[in-house]
C-alpha cells in the first residue's frame, strides 16, 4: 500500500490529463480531424500496384497524368488500362471487367482512399514539381497489392513536413520539361524567358491560405 500511495500523484496527474483529453477527442470527431490512416477498402477491380509499379516499374505518372500539372493526380481513364490490356492478360476476369467497362462506355467507380477534407486544398503539381517522391505521402505503393492510406494525413502531419523542409533549405530539382515560356519562344521566335540564376530553394508555405481558401 505504501508503494501505491507514493505513486498516486503521478497517476493522478496522468489521469487528470486523460479525462479532458478523452472528452476533447470525443468532441473532436465532429471537427475536421479525419484521420483514415490504415484505410484499405476493396476496389471494383483488384488492381495491384505491387505488380504494375513494383514488378514492372511503371512510372506513376504513366497513369496518374495530372500529378505533374494539376491539383489532382487523377485516376487513369479506363482506356489507359486498355493501352496494354488489349494484348496482355486478356483472359483475366479482372481485366475483363475493365474491358467490359470500356465496351459499355461506363466508367469504373474506384473507392477513394487518400482524401483530405473539402476545406483543404492540396496541389499535386506543386509537390511533384518540388521533387517529392510519391511515396513520401502515399507510402510504398509499389509494394501494395491493395492500396491503403499509410500516413496520418492530418494537418499536423502536413505542417511537420512543410516546416522541416523550410528549415533544411532543400532546393527544388530543375524543371524536367522545357518550360512553357521556352516552348512558346521556340515556336514564335519571341525571346525566351530569362533562365533561373540559382536553383529554387523550397519554401513550403505554412500560411493558412495555402491550403484553406
Amino acid at each position: 500500500m505504501k508503494d501505491a500511495s507514493t505513486r498516486f500523484p503521478r497517476r493522478a496527474l496522468t489521469a487528470a490529463w486523460m479525462g479532458p483529453l478523452a472528452a476533447l477527442s470525443l468532441a473532436g470527431c465532429s471537427g475536421p480531424v479525419n484521420n483514415q490512416q490504415g484505410y484499405m477498402p476493396e476496389q471494383p477491380v483488384a488492381f495491384s500496384h505491387a505488380v504494375h509499379a513494383g514488378q514492372y516499374g511503371l512510372d506513376c505518372q504513366y497513369c496518374h497524368v495530372g500529378a505533374e500539372k494539376s491539383r489532382h493526380a487523377g485516376v487513369p481513364s479506363t482506356s489507359v488500362c486498355m493501352n496494354c490490356h488489349t494484348q496482355v492478360k486478356t483472359d483475366s476476369p479482372e481485366i475483363q471487367k475493365v474491358a467490359a467497362a470500356v465496351a459499355e462506355n461506363k466508367p469504373l467507380a474506384w473507392v477513394r482512399i487518400h482524401r483530405l477534407p473539402d476545406h483543404a486544398y492540396f496541389n499535386h503539381a506543386s509537390h511533384v514539381g518540388a521533387g517529392l517522391d510519391c511515396q513520401t505521402c502515399h507510402g510504398p505503393v509499389q509494394e501494395m497489392v491493395r492500396v491503403e492510406q499509410r500516413e496520418r494525413m492530418t494537418m499536423g502531419w502536413c505542417l511537420d513536413c512543410h516546416r522541416d523542409t523550410a528549415a533544411k533549405q532543400v532546393s527544388a530539382p530543375p524543371p524536367s520539361a522545357p518550360r512553357a515560356g521556352e516552348l512558346l519562344a521556340l515556336s514564335s521566335g519571341a525571346p525566351a524567358p530569362e533562365p533561373l540564376k540559382a536553383p529554387r530553394i523550397l519554401q513550403p508555405p505554412t500560411d493558412c491560405s495555402s491550403c484553406h481558401r
Binding site: 479525419n34 483514415q36 495530372g66 500539372k69 489532382h72 487513369p76 481513364s77 473507392v111 477513394r112 482524401r115
Partner: peptide, 22 residues
C-alpha cells in the same frame, strides 16, 4: 472517424484537352 465512402469516377476515355483540376 470513418467518413462515408467516396468514389472516384474517371473518364472512360479522357478528352485530350481536359486534365481534371486544370
Amino acid at each position: 472517424q470513418r467518413a462515408p465512402v467516396q468514389q472516384i469516377i474517371p473518364y472512360v476515355a479522357r478528352p485530350d484537352e481536359v486534365t481534371p483540376g486544370l
